[in-house]
Nucleic acid binder design. Sequence first.
DNA 1: GTTATTTTGAAAACCAATTTCAAGTAGCGA
DNA 2: TCGCTACTTGAAATTGGTTTTCAAAATAAC
Lengths: 145, 145
Amino acid sequence: MGDRKQTFRDYLSQQGLKSTRQREIILDEFLRCDSHLSTEDLYLKLRKKHPGIGYATVYRTLKIFSECGIAETRNFGDGQTRYESTTCEEHHDHLICKDCGAIIEFEDPRIEQLQEQVAKGHGFIMVSHRLEIFGQCTKCQNKGN
Amino acid sequence: MGDRKQTFRDYLSQQGLKSTRQREIILDEFLRCDSHLSTEDLYLKLRKKHPGIGYATVYRTLKIFSECGIAETRNFGDGQTRYESTTCEEHHDHLICKDCGAIIEFEDPRIEQLQEQVAKGHGFIMVSHRLEIFGQCTKCQNKGN
DNA sequence: GTTATTTTGAAAACCAATTTCAAGTAGCGA
DNA sequence: TCGCTACTTGAAATTGGTTTTCAAAATAAC
């Protein structure tokens, strides 16, 4: 946590960018929040306490987060880009309920390994991957239908 | 092939929709082409032989394709929706070159099975999934970086 | 053929993402 | 501290793909 703030500040100065009040506020809020936020989600949250901060600033700051590695972009097919704060933990994938939209994170090294194999088998050097499983969660199964 | 055309016609009449010259042309072209076409790709291809057909018609027709199950939508994160014609074959996933954009299809039953396991482990009923591996293909590796 | 309904194509609307620009701010050096 | 320069900000405009609108044209049933 503390070191992600540091990572951000280091990245800024290294790129000749400036540390500003807005960027600090946005970073704090981003780290505090649940993940999988869209630009709009974060903008709306921020607006409650900091009405002055504009959408464009949130957008640009999130982009910097992903450049410096403290956030990753996700894309679940609903037309909105979401940002997820990276953790020291392993890479993970997502299980998404098609009914209620619940998102569960999981990781499975066996799947990761097989992916690596597949890539190699086609002569590819794997850089990243994305796995999403869509289904129906327990709750929604019980709600009938 | 023949039966996918039939599937489409059946769907139309079942929904009270009409069979038109444009829809037939678009279907023919769609089945003839490589997969992973965006609306624009298909529109541009069609325009060569059938300049009269409008973008909106291609868009709407592709939507019907996906409703009746002869096409599936894909989303590789470049901001364009792509349509892939479904085959009788197994489900497959994608290997995508981050440099030249080449798309390779693959399938791996071992991965599929592990996904099923993961879903079950979280109490989910798996409906579908999406797996994309991003990397660098052999060609682009040789082109140096 | 006539009629009711659907479809078409061009243009407009839509919406998230991205850029523009004038005013404001940070950070450096004097 | 002051001044300068470059970067940042927020509002508004723009972009680019998607989706809808609407009047004219085409289809299917009568």
